[in-house]
Amino acid sequence: MKITDRQKKKFLKSLKQARIEAGLTQSEVAEQIGASQSFISKIESGSISLEVEIFLKLYQLYEKPAVYFFSAFSRK
């Protein structure tokens, strides 16, 4: 199954929105997961791929249900 550009953009938007709703800056997130601010920026912009391990760290940090992120891939 191919991931469409629309799905990817929606997923990345939800990732950024979750950070904002958590009241965190990119720098604060980077510090908490042991990365650089530019790394977080590149993930949110889609210029680098998001590894599962990093996603799981963000998922725990943002405290959102999985459906919050994966609704981009629903067949509706």
Score class of each variant (00 low, 15 high):
L12Q: 00
Q32C: 02
Q32Y: 07
S14C: 10
G46R: 00
V67I: 13
Q60F: 11
F11S: 01
I33S: 09
E21L: 13
V52H: 10
V52Y: 11
K64T: 04
E44K: 04
I43R: 02
G23M: 13
K9F: 05
K16I: 08
E44L: 07
S45I: 08
K16G: 01
A35T: 08
S47A: 05
F55M: 02
S71G: 07
K57C: 02
K8A: 10
L61W: 10
Q37G: 04
I48P: 03
I48C: 02
Q60L: 13
S27L: 14
K10T: 15
E31N: 12
K9E: 15
I48K: 02
R19P: 01
S41R: 10
S38E: 12
V29L: 12
S74Y: 07
E53H: 09
A66G: 04
I54W: 05
S27M: 10
R19C: 07
S71M: 10
K57Q: 14
S45Q: 10
S14I: 01
G34M: 08
Q26G: 04
T4D: 02
L61D: 09
I40H: 00
F39Q: 05
L58F: 02
Q60R: 14
Q7C: 06
L15K: 01
A66F: 08
L24A: 05
K8S: 14
K76T: 11
L61Y: 09
S41G: 13
K9G: 02
A18C: 07
D5I: 06
K13F: 15
F39L: 06
Q26N: 03
S71H: 14
S74N: 11
F55P: 01
A22E: 06
L50G: 02
V67Q: 12
Q17H: 10
I3F: 07
V29A: 11
A22F: 03
Y59V: 05
Q17N: 12
F69P: 00
S45T: 11
S38C: 05
Q17V: 04
L24G: 02
E53R: 09
K10E: 15
I20P: 03
S47Y: 05
T25S: 15
K8T: 09
T25Y: 08
M1C: 04
I54P: 00
S14T: 08
R75N: 14
T25M: 09
F39E: 04
I43S: 04
K42V: 03
Q37V: 07
I54H: 05
S49V: 12
I48M: 03
K13S: 11
T25N: 09
L56K: 03
K2E: 14
F39N: 03
R6Q: 14
E63T: 10
K2G: 08
G34Y: 07
K10F: 12
M1D: 09
